[in-house]
Lab assay of single mutants.
Amino acid sequence: SEFSSRSGYGEYVQQTLQPGMRVRMLDDYEEISAGDEGEFRQSNNGIPPVQVFWQSTGRTYWVHWHMLEILGP
């Protein structure tokens, strides 16, 4: 990996993601499973900070930056 740390990767995702971009989950996290795909909606200063609309659940759920792989527009 070109990223030395999880936080470095998270910063990359945070700087790159734009609303509407497709993402894939890298880790299991509460209701969301690794491999689930969705659409980035928004972020804020909460914890976790990233709101994604997940195809698997049909609704939005908040996750962490480093848990997401960017699939593209």
Score class of each variant (00 low, 15 high):
Ser1Asn: 08
Ser1Leu: 11
Ser1Pro: 03
Ser1Cys: 08
Ser1His: 08
Glu2Gly: 12
Phe3Ala: 07
Phe3Lys: 07
Ser4His: 12
Ser5Ile: 15
Ser5Glu: 14
Arg6Val: 14
Arg6Lys: 12
Arg6Asn: 11
Arg6Tyr: 11
Ser7Thr: 10
Gly8Ala: 15
Gly8Cys: 13
Gly8Val: 13
Gly8Tyr: 14
Tyr9Asn: 07
Tyr9Phe: 02
Tyr9Val: 00
Tyr9Lys: 10
Gly10Met: 10
Gly10Asn: 05
Gly10Ala: 14
Glu11Phe: 10
Tyr12Asp: 04
Tyr12Met: 07
Val13Lys: 03
Val13Glu: 00
Val13Arg: 03
Gln14Cys: 07
Gln15Tyr: 11
Gln15Gly: 12
Gln15Ala: 12
Gln15His: 00
Thr16Cys: 07
Thr16Pro: 01
Gln18Glu: 13
Gln18His: 10
Pro19Glu: 07
Gly20Val: 04
Met21Pro: 08
Arg22Ile: 07
Arg22Gly: 06
Val23Ala: 03
Arg24Tyr: 11
Arg24His: 03
Arg24Gly: 15
Met25Ser: 09
Leu26Ala: 00
Asp27Cys: 10
Asp27Pro: 01
Asp27Ser: 13
Asp28Pro: 06
Asp28His: 05
Glu30Leu: 06
Glu30Arg: 09
Glu31Asn: 07
Glu31Met: 08
Glu31Asp: 15
Ile32Glu: 00
Ile32Leu: 15
Ile32Asp: 00
Ile32Ser: 06
Ala34Ser: 09
Gly35Met: 05
Gly35His: 00
Gly35Val: 00
Asp36Pro: 02
Glu37Leu: 11
Glu37Gln: 10
Glu37Arg: 02
Gly38Cys: 07
Gly38Glu: 00
Gly38Phe: 00
Gly38Gln: 00
Gly38Met: 02
Gly38Ala: 00
Glu39Ser: 06
Glu39Asp: 08
Glu39Pro: 14
Phe40Leu: 02
Phe40Met: 05
Phe40Cys: 02
Arg41Asn: 09
Gln42Tyr: 05
Gln42Leu: 10
Gln42Asp: 10
Gln42Ser: 13
Gln42His: 05
Asn45Glu: 13
Asn45Tyr: 06
Gly46Thr: 15
Pro48Phe: 03
Pro48Ile: 09
Pro48Met: 10
Pro48Gln: 05
Pro49Phe: 02
Pro49Lys: 04
Val50Lys: 02
Val50Pro: 00
Gln51Trp: 03
Gln51Pro: 05
Gln51Asp: 03
Val52Asp: 02
Val52Ala: 03
Val52Thr: 05
Phe53His: 10
Phe53Lys: 09
Trp54Met: 12
Gln55Pro: 13
Thr57Asp: 04
Thr57Lys: 08
Thr57Val: 13
Arg59Thr: 12
Arg59Leu: 01
Arg59Tyr: 06
Thr60Ala: 11
Thr60Tyr: 09
Tyr61Glu: 14
Tyr61Asp: 04
Tyr61Cys: 15
Trp62Gln: 15
Trp62Val: 04
Trp62Asn: 15
Trp62Ala: 15
Trp62Phe: 09
Trp62Lys: 07
Val63Thr: 02
Val63Trp: 00
Val63Cys: 02
Val63Phe: 02
His64Ser: 01
His64Val: 08
Trp65Lys: 04
Trp65Pro: 14
His66Ile: 05
His66Met: 03
His66Leu: 03
Met67His: 15
Met67Glu: 00
Met67Tyr: 08
Leu68Met: 04
Leu68Ile: 12
Leu68Ala: 02
Leu68Trp: 02
Ile70Pro: 14
Ile70Ser: 00
Leu71Phe: 03
Leu71Asn: 03
Leu71Thr: 13
Leu71Glu: 06
Gly72Arg: 13
Gly72Phe: 14
Pro73Leu: 06
Pro73Glu: 09
